[in-house]
Design a protein around this nucleic acid. Structure first.
Lengths: 148, 148
DNA sequence: AGCTTAAATGCAACAGTGTTGCGATTAGGG
DNA sequence: CCCTAATCGCAACACTGTTGCATTTAAGCT
């Protein structure tokens, strides 16, 4: 919820400005990940003009507050739908329709961190992205192959 | 080995040009991943001048022949010492010294994919990045705390 | 409400990254 | 040594991201 993010901004001593609210709303509505310039374009379509510098700075801030995430594979941004207790974020991105789902699993994190420790590496934060097909697109692809 | 890559070029019908040889050598020597412009800078230090467009095209070709690999997290390039059968790449990045280590683990991939399947998601490619401290930096940090 | 001011935004200018088209060069086979 | 397609260099461009500074604004305080 946008309202939750606004509360985070307030409690952390950041101003709740119009640009920040607008970016929050765009991220909230989006089904897929967005680049800074995507966000600018989407806002422009609503008659709202934000300088790209502003958007970059807002996204930096949101990431530092864990209100948003920057995806490793694309450098694009998504809202953070989970808290940050885990220090671990997993995404499934459908490369066909672009939809994105975030989830967390304590056990997987433990294993991943334990594995890194075998290399004498001390994990503090973990990001994981799976690219593939969501259930819908998998079904469509399957049908298409049958018909062909 | 550079020689092996040259043989791949030949058998696939690609010319073995001076620029291609030079990029192969740079990739072979490198301990870390390199951006196209990194490669240009390194070559320039050796008195060898390559246009950046040429480097981009060479790297594209190398990736298509699996002679090099483009890291998803950074977009930088490394020589391809292993095939890409796994479709799974794990990185440990030390946020203190920046060193990067890539590894793969079949069991972790299977588990991750299996977990995604619970969401009816069909994983095709997996990318995972752990941020933390490498053994060296962990030790240094530890010593500093003891001394303080 | 208006005042104050530090924070935030906008603007201009710039640096870095990556792409395209085309003419010039070159590897490698005949 | 020629020939020619493949490759490279160059120019020009588009996109992405950053910095410094002037202007605006949120929000606390009368």
């Amino acid at each position: 919820m946008v309202q939750d993010s606004i509360r985070v901004l307030q409690t952390q001593g950041y101003k709740v400005t119009k640009p920040r609210r607008q970016v929050l709303e765009i991220l909230e509505e989006a089904q897929e990940s967005l680049s800074p310039y995507d966000i600018q374009r989407l806002l422009r379509r609503q008659g709202k003009h934000l300088n790209h510098v502003t958007i970059y700075r807002i996204l930096d801030l949101f990431c530092s507050l864990n209100l948003a995430h920057k995806l490793l594979s694309t450098g694009r941004f998504v809202k953070c739908s989970l808290g940050d207790k885990e220090g671990c974020h997993r995404f499934m991105v459908c490369h066909r329709c672009g939809t994105l789902q975030e989830f967390a699993d304590e056990r997987l994190c433990q294993e991943e961190n334990g594995f890194a420790r075998n290399f004498d590496f001390h994990t503090e934060y973990h990001l994981s992205e799976s690219s593939g097909l969501c259930s819908n697109c998998y079904r469509k692809q399957h049908q298409k192959q049958e018909n062909a």
